[in-house]
Amino acid sequence: MNLNLQWTWFHRLGSPRWFYQKTQRWLPWLSLIMLSLLALGLVWGLAFAPQDAKQGNSFRIIYVHVPASVVALAGYYLMAIAGAVGLIWRIKLSYMLMRSAAPIGAALTFVALVTGAIWGKPTWGAYWVWDARITSMLILLFLYLGVMALRHAYSSNEAADKASAILGLVGMVNVPIIYKSVDWWQTLHQPATIKFTGAPSMHPDMFMPLVVMIAGFYMFYAVTLILFTRIEILRREYRSSWVKQLVENN
């Protein structure tokens, strides 16, 4: 059997045209699920979840802080892996996904840092502390911004994509450091509430809306990544006949 045959599905998956047409149909459904999850989670978390015995109502910030952080970290893996796939297989769509993931990840990291700072004031007594978790999260923001900035440093898309992918891969080591920072160092930041093994250290009445919010943020990530990638496709494929047809029919 021809070895190359096994990889054809992989390359078809990497077709910008296929992606653009499929996501056209997915977007309304994904947006609907995203909106319902976020609306449910926001109302539940803000108005219906009980307050915390020690922190009072300021703990409600967890409903935006934790989902933003979780998705910002997962999004970095997605960006780095997309970059690696682009480097190895030269799949165009993969580079487009990497490029689109950077601004979304940067914005979510920014949200995690800002909401964390706002939460820190009433509970810890300070907006900002040079704590291991917070510092490594700040490095994540700089890595995202670096991947975004590298594009402007090169005149050709190809060279910029390669450089961005390498920076993304090198920065990937920061992600497990962020995860484990609360266990490795004496930090002010509390350890993870949601654990891979064992029950979460949170009452179910407070935990359920958090799960809804995290799911909502993942859907939000999917929707925005698709929207950004579609723009990237239009920008890079404007010479192809299917894009011209698409624009003329519009």
Binding site: L42, L46, Q51, G56, N57, S58, R60, I61, Y63, V64, H65, A68, P103, I104, A107, L108, F110, V111, V114, T115, I118, W119, K121, P122, F220, V223, T224, L227, F228, R230, I231
Partner: peptide, 25 residues
């Protein structure tokens, strides 16, 4: 109970950034 300013500002900033990410593309 006095924490409203922190909670509401954190939620507003998050929502503004999210709306921006949707409407920009």
């Amino acid at each position: 109970d006095g924490h409203g300013i922190y909670v509401w500002s954190a939620f507003s900033i998050t929502i503004v950034v999210m709306l921006g990410l949707i409407f920009k593309p």
